[in-house]
């Protein structure tokens, strides 16, 4: 029976990837991509990792889908032209390359799966070292304590993506256009329920992150989803200038993480050593704020955010 479930989800992934990427209109492709992301989250749930299920759903399908849709809408609002389809020769070549790569990756993957050893030495080391840190969730342990340089640089990648997007935007523009706000009465009611719930769920994910699946990334993405909802419902508006508070929020994750790491180095501990679970929560909160603020600003396509609509 579990094979039937896996087979259904796996074929769903392949069919949805085909529908998202080949043929049909672009908007339908984006819709199918979002459905692909949610099905991918189901696959992670089946593979026994709820963390990834939440991250794929919140970041992979939710925020990425929102970014794709707003980009598609802006391209139409700008009246960008539709490129000519490719020549049939290129289609055949592409088909050949696609098939070849699929077969190669399948053979490589099957060989890799077949030749699985007794399990990664790093994985065993993780299982042994985890209890000492007082954390229950191995993934948060890896992200914040054992391999925290990855996580620190990754938050820096998000910051770089935002600064680069602002550099692309150029400073002559107030903000990119946004679709008209949906403030029908019912939407107001939904926003009144969903926005606070998003904050509540984000804080829960953060707190639960050390013992149960959850953590800063999922929490940050849920905050971003709440921010996107507020923008679509016309409660939050792009602003030409980035307030100091928002700027601090953008760099909070990187600065707090580096700060704790360097202070520990100054106290004679190894670089980036994390003293205790209180430090884990401090760092995760800062990262959640940074990730949420950055993703909402990337969606808004503007320097800052403001509650009062511009006249």
């Amino acid at each position: 029976m579990s094979l039937a479930i896996d087979l259904l989800i796996a074929t769903g992934l392949v069919v949805l990837a085909w529908q998202a990427l080949v043929g049909g209109s672009l908007f339908r492709g984006i819709v199918m991509f979002i459905v692909f992301g949610l099905t991918m989250a189901l696959a992670w749930a089946r593979l026994g990792s709820p963390d990834l299920a939440m991250a794929e759903a919140a970041i992979g399908a939710g925020v990425t889908g929102a970014l794709l849709m707003i980009a598609y809408w802006r391209l139409r609002a700008l009246g960008a032209n539709r490129p000519a389809p490719r020549s049939p020769l290129r289609a055949r070549v592409a088909l050949g390359v696609g098939l070849l790569s699929a077969v190669l990756v399948a053979m490589i993957g099957l060989a890799a799966v077949g030749a699985i050893g007794p399990g990664g030495e790093a994985g065993q080391a993780l299982a042994e070292a985890l209890p000492a840190t007082g954390l229950g969730n191995p993934i948060t342990g890896v992200l914040v304590i054992f391999r925290n340089l990855d996580t620190l640089l990754e938050v820096a990648v998000l910051l770089a993506a935002y600064v680069a997007s602002r550099a692309v935007m150029g400073d002559d523009k107030a903000a990119l256009p946004l679709p008209p706000a949906q403030d029908a009465p019912l939407v107001g009611a939904l926003v009144a329920v969903l926005a606070p719930l998003a904050v509540l769920v984000a804080i829960y994910l953060l707190k639960a992150g050390s013992q149960l699946p959850g953590g800063a990334f999922q929490a940050g993405a849920v905050l971003a989803a709440g921010g996107v909802l507020l923008m679509l419902a016309g409660r939050l508006h792009p602003a030409p200038l980035c307030g100091v508070g928002l700027r601090i929020a953008l760099v909070a994750g990187t600065v707090v993480f580096s700060g704790v790491g360097l202070i520990m180095l100054a106290l004679g501990q190894p670089l980036l050593a994390i003293p205790g679970t209180w430090a884990v929560y401090l760092i995760e909160t800062a990262m959640m704020i940074s990730i949420g603020a950055t993703l909402v600003l990337l969606f808004a396509g503007s320097a800052g955010l403001t509650g009062t609509p511009r006249r």
Partner: peptide, 20 residues
């Protein structure tokens, strides 16, 4: 919790669809 996340996302996605 993931299911709760899905429900919130579904609501936001439908509003985004209508807006777009």
């Amino acid at each position: 919790v993931a299911a709760l996340l899905f429900v919130m996302l579904a609501a936001i996605t439908s509003i985004a669809f209508v807006a777009m």
